[in-house]
Design a protein around this nucleic acid. Sequence first.
RNA 1: UGGCGGAUCGUCUAAUGGUAGGACGGCGGACUCUGGAUCCGCUAGUCUAGGUUCGAAUCCUAGUCCGCCAGCCA
Length: 779
Amino acid sequence: MTQPSPRPNAATDFIRDRIAADLASGKHSTVITRFPPEPNGYLHLGHAKSIFLNFGLAEEFGGRCHLRFDDTNPETEDPEYVESIQRDVRWLGCDWGDHLYFASDYFERLYELAEELIKAGKAYVDSSSEEEIRALRGTVTEPGRPSPYRDRSVEENLDLFRRMRAGEFPEGSHVLRAKIDLAAKNMKMRDPLLYRIRKRPHYRTGDTWCVYPFYDYTHCLSDAFEGITHSICTLEFENNRELYDWVIDNLREHLPARPEQIEFARLDLSYTVMSKRKLLQLVQEGIVAGWDDPRMPTLSGLRRRGVTPDALRTFCERIGVAKTNSTVDVQLFEHCVRDDLNHRAPRVMAVLDPLKVVITNYPEDRSEELDASYWPHDVPREGSRKVPFSRELFIERDDFREDPPKKYKRLAPGREVRLRYGYFIVCDEVIKDEAGRVVELRCTYDPATRGGAAPDGRSPKATLHWVSAAHAIDVEVRLYDRLFRAEVPGADGRDYHEDLNPDSLVVVRAKAEPSLATAGPGEHFQFERQGYFFADPVDTSPGAPVFNRTIGLRDSWAKRSQPKGSRPAAPSRPRREAPTGRSSAPRSRDDYLAGLPPAARERFLAFEARGLPWGDARTLATEPALADLFAEATRHHDDPRAVANWVVNDVARALKTRSELPFGGEALAELVELVATNRLSTKLARRVFEEMLASGERPAAIVERKGWRQLTDPAELRPLVEAVLAADPERVADYRGGKEKLLGYFLGQVMQRSGGQADPKTARELLRSALAEERGEAR
RNA sequence: UGGCGGAUCGUCUAAUGGUAGGACGGCGGACUCUGGAUCCGCUAGUCUAGGUUCGAAUCCUAGUCCGCCAGCCA
């Protein structure tokens, strides 16, 4: 289990690190994770991140991942969602094997444990109203107060709870609460609710139950039942972890395992909404055509749009896993989609906005078939089709300009362009209707350029896609774009509806090459020079394909020609405030002193009088434990500054994770003395300090036992320096070339080779002069 | 105002006291029968202020900003 990852090059993250550590330390011998959706909506891109994380972890560490439906709320859950969720998880390529679970299957067991809690005096039935409970809970700054029912007897609680289950009481009349602490700083710990009465049929258990457990009670126990080792959830559950642990700890004797919760940042995407509530609204308000509308970030929507599971997986791997709240740029997602489709979508031609072209020197009754590869030269796949060519064609209206702007490379009067896989044509004449709109182009072709190459070697700057008018088929094409035009829909207090992109769907009748007539549902194509398209899996019928635009091609021309037009980058998210320097100005020593009560002021001044900088003095004046240690240590080693450095920095740190030190001031003084007398470098001394923390042993004894000493003799150090420089001629050259920062790197290497024992000051001088010599020799 | 998290190029993410790196984006160039792809180059960052250290994104102190928590939702 020390080499668990089959993806040695894959990025690691804090969760993988932690699991690897748990395995290495023997805390766990296997990894069992779970993906726990509530069946009250469709899965979206954010869930994909969680799914790939949980299933990926299981696979990498040789464990398993469960699919568990967290179905404890009969009001919102529905079998339709259970179906769609399983379909989506499977579609992503994740396999839960036999490990499909439902929290609702645990209802009996959960109920029994709730009785155990009651019997242990750790839960009670509260008969307060919802409003009363809310009022008694207090606020984030004020403690809550106990309900009058908090001290009911175990017998009464048991009786009441059983009768709740039996259906004797109406909804809202009683709840079961954990008896923890109404004054807890963490609101989640103020006697959280465990069970409520709901007289609704549950989609799986029917009328069997009229009490339903809450998430905080159900989730942790479900994890424990299933032997989950690492229960991974999103950041907003950080506050719930304390309760998670409380429930587990208080029922530990009844449980087979002790899972632990780890939180990571959920995925947010720019130009997208991802909350279930908003997604449900979009569906219910008819803003989109359903959960699987291709504009939706739901997995079913993405699937229907033509995004593949591979693309999603790559995306999820690229965004990483961390604890920072973040919003990923949708362009990274779009990049992953294009990158995936580039290698799987055959190239075809379709004209979305047709402009008629007549080749005047091409015989009216003639047509011919041209060879056209499905793949560009840089995609190593085989296959081609024939495309018909004739006198009348369609090209893209946008590929012609009567008055071409600078850098416009496409067709214009008198200009020659290449028709993809066809001939070169020159535009001779522009025909317009009464309104002045261009309706037809009359061109001539060069018969010698068949297939796209000219015998004289000339090459037009542009190559256009086209279709033969007589042979083209009409197809419906749905041009999807981002659903929102604001980077953060609903930012700055707006209603997110205001940020809806009115052009998120444009349906056109397009002219497509005849080969597309047989396109089957679910096939991917690239319409050359336009984008990636997907034959709609629902609306495509034999001979009549309907295409969804998955994503447009990158378009550097569009970018150049309309840099700030079509896609108004409306209100962005609030930028981080630039530091004004004024508001963040730290308090000065004098300000601090002025605000101090007399006693503290006296202590502070006394520390300053012993030569300590005011920051150290402040720390010692506020922390009695540190002050005591400082006092005792300075009695044994009278160097207040040196002692204070240790106390204020290293001891303060140590005290963050433990309540007391296994050694006293005398031992600390001994350590400081070891440094002062040059027997230890600070680096070594820190290691000794760690040992002291772990064992309580005296520093001198540790040094003795480990055989640590500082290497100060240049004669001892020189071979190390030489070895380091010899091992890395390239960096030495860089250093010679002026990259003097490398000195720190070399010193690091020397320190490492010496096991931390080199005296860094001496080593640095040695390094410096050795590198200077090198420079001399090189001349 | 309380508790818990968090802060590294525009965005996402590495660096676990020892060269601040990658990706996306942007800009420029090469190449091209897709203004695609590919390739090359450039751009740009450690929240602030002090301190510890030979050396700090990383450790200490103080501050700033952001997120989450007061559902009988999950």
